[in-house]
Amino acid sequence: MTSMSTKARGTGAAGTSVLPEVPDPSQVAPKDARQLSRLFFERLATLEEGTAEHQYARGTLIEMNMSLVRYAAGRFRSRGPEEMEDIVQVGMIGLIKAIDRFELSREAEFTSFAIPYIVGEIKRFFRDTTWAVHVPRRLQEARVQLAKATEELQSRLGRLPTDRELSELMSLPEDEVREARLAANGYNSSSLDATIGGSTDGEAVLQDFIGTEDAALELVEDFHSLAPLIAALDERDRQILHMRFVEELTQAQIGEHLGVSQMHVSRLLTRTLARLREGLLTLQ
């Protein structure tokens, strides 16, 4: 862990913890960051937004927990160093959202709370900005160059240019021009209702040739997303979920086991399931 100054940050009200100064928050070890984060969250909850101390506490929390973003982004390391920079930046947005929404009263580790926000933000980035089919960055850039060259030559020649003419203007080999043209097909996707071979009534459509969704695969992703949300619940709520959906006990049996009424068990289950549902919706 990086060394901390003994100088306190801010005066603090009576009975209120005073924040220590952390010279380089980004160098704090993850284990120490977990302990320090709790102290900063406690103080952040008492500070007025917009004040210098609030900005210091919030900024320090962001820097101390950047390792969570790097950890989550590591799942997508196969996308290359250029795209990884974008992924980390997007993950930081998820981290900031998690910090602004986290409450110590949840009695959960901030790590378990933040990871779904970070991963969810990265997935949204892929959904909103990537190509229909992923192609190498060099071909994505070549597609833009190809479109400009094609428009220029078509205007000049009055016809569609050949690959040779395009390669001369773009200063690229003909095979790369053809490869860029082929890659451009991955930029847009077609509707599943698009007909094959024309618009004749009764013609087969694309969706007729696509397999059905595998519900089991969807469950794997749902379970993966649910895991940190369940881990953030308190022990009693997790116990009730286990008895209801793993042991398959009735609400009356659960109430008898816990020494509470069936109605109380029903309220607890409803509250817990609503919380999990809300958590999943934030990741979509």
Rank of each mutant, 00 (worst) to 15 (best):
A29I: 07
L104R: 01
T46A: 14
Q262H: 02
A274G: 04
R244T: 02
A29G: 09
D163P: 05
R164D: 15
D32I: 04
E107F: 05
G120K: 00
K7A: 12
Q145M: 11
N188S: 11
L182I: 15
S112I: 05
L160E: 14
A142L: 15
A52P: 11
L226S: 03
Q140R: 15
P81Q: 10
E213G: 09
R70Q: 12
M243I: 02
R138G: 04
R143P: 04
E141W: 11
I96G: 06
A227L: 09
R267T: 02
A194Y: 12
S261C: 02
P116Y: 09
E152I: 14
S189V: 14
E221P: 01
P25R: 00
Q140A: 13
T150C: 05
Q89H: 10
Q140S: 11
P173C: 12
S167R: 08
T270H: 07
Q35S: 08
L268Y: 00
E42N: 08
I115K: 03
F110Q: 01
S112V: 09
L19R: 04
H242G: 04
F110P: 00
E83W: 00
L182H: 11
G255Q: 07
S67H: 15
A252K: 06
K31V: 13
A114Q: 01
E176S: 07
A13N: 08
R9N: 06
V144C: 07
K97P: 03
R156Y: 09
S3L: 08
A231T: 11
Y71I: 15
T111Q: 06
A45W: 05
V265M: 00
A180Q: 06
R127S: 12
L160Q: 13
E141G: 02
L206S: 08
D214H: 13
R156G: 01
R38H: 13
T46W: 07
G259C: 04
P136G: 05
E49Y: 07
G80P: 06
L182C: 08
T6I: 09
A147M: 11
R181W: 14
V260G: 02
V135Y: 12
R181A: 15
K148Y: 12
A114R: 00
D128Q: 10
G15L: 09
E247G: 02
R159S: 04
W131P: 01
G198S: 12
G94S: 10
M170H: 03
I210M: 13
Q284P: 00
R137P: 02
L166A: 07
L280C: 00
F102K: 01
V28H: 05
L233D: 05
L169A: 13
F102A: 01
A204Q: 14
L36P: 00
N185R: 14
D86C: 03
D24C: 05
L95P: 00
L192W: 14
G50K: 06
G12A: 12
Q35W: 02
